[in-house]
Amino acid sequence: MNLSVSSPSNINHQTMTTSQISLRHVSKVFPGRKGWLNKLTGQATSDFLAIDDINLDIEHNTFVSIIGPSGCGKSTLLNIIAGLSSATSGSILMNGQPIAKPGPDRGMVFQNYALMPWMSVEDNIRFAVETVYPKISPKEQSRIVKEHIQLVGLVGAEKKRPNEISGGMRQRVGIARALAINPQILLMDEPFGALDALTRGFLQDEVERIWEQERKTAIMITHSIEEALLLSDRIVMMTRGPAAKIDEILEVPFPRPRDRTTVENHPAYLKLKQEMEEHLYRETRAVEAARLSR
């Protein structure tokens, strides 16, 4: 409604900071079903305040994970940053400029891969490159496509259709597609959520390796504490919804490049893990309690 509430001085303040993304007082209300017809049929619902007054700054070249109980509004928040959904109030700035719509400066990896089933692996990536860089020569486009197929380890599967490859390979395509357009920020909504534990582990290592190479700003939603600790510089912990807020932001001090064993043997690992477990346990239990008392 009032997207531009931030005063000019506020904007100046933002441009001076070093953060790449900053959220100021971001709230999202999903309007309920209203009107006499819904009331008559008993289907009316009230407005739902999903996230309330979120403030968050994300610096350049950091990997940030968002973790929180199911249904708290993580996807809502990420979709707002992606521009796929608009905030009801508050402002979202990227490099000091308000975000209004989706754009190729933010690359998105979808939980359910969202590959086009009629395009081969190669064509899915090429579609992204062609869309974002229509001006560069086809030869150069092919080079970018090939490079990213190599980056995610899909050589040999270029001509296969999405329905002919495994879930892990599909998500590799999803990651390659997001990276191929060279976005400033990588957004990932539970990228490994639909994978088995083993494949998940492999892909986490892969993402860690790729991230070390590219060091792009990344925002990832996850339900896995280990995953967040392995990959992130900072972990944003959200409270339960409705009206979810940011509870706490953890700094993850592990040196990079990381691998599973060095991370797990780091002195701070257990303490961080315990803190996150407690947070998630507390919030999830409160959600259940609220559900039962209804």
């Binding site: 754009g103 190729p104 086009m116």
Partner: peptide
Amino acid sequence: VSPDYLDVAKTLGASRLRTIFKVIIPAAL
């Protein structure tokens, strides 16, 4: 057409025409 495909086109900043010909029509084929 699955909103996922449309979201992909949107996040890539695809034009309306490109979305129709490259995404919507093949998906509806």
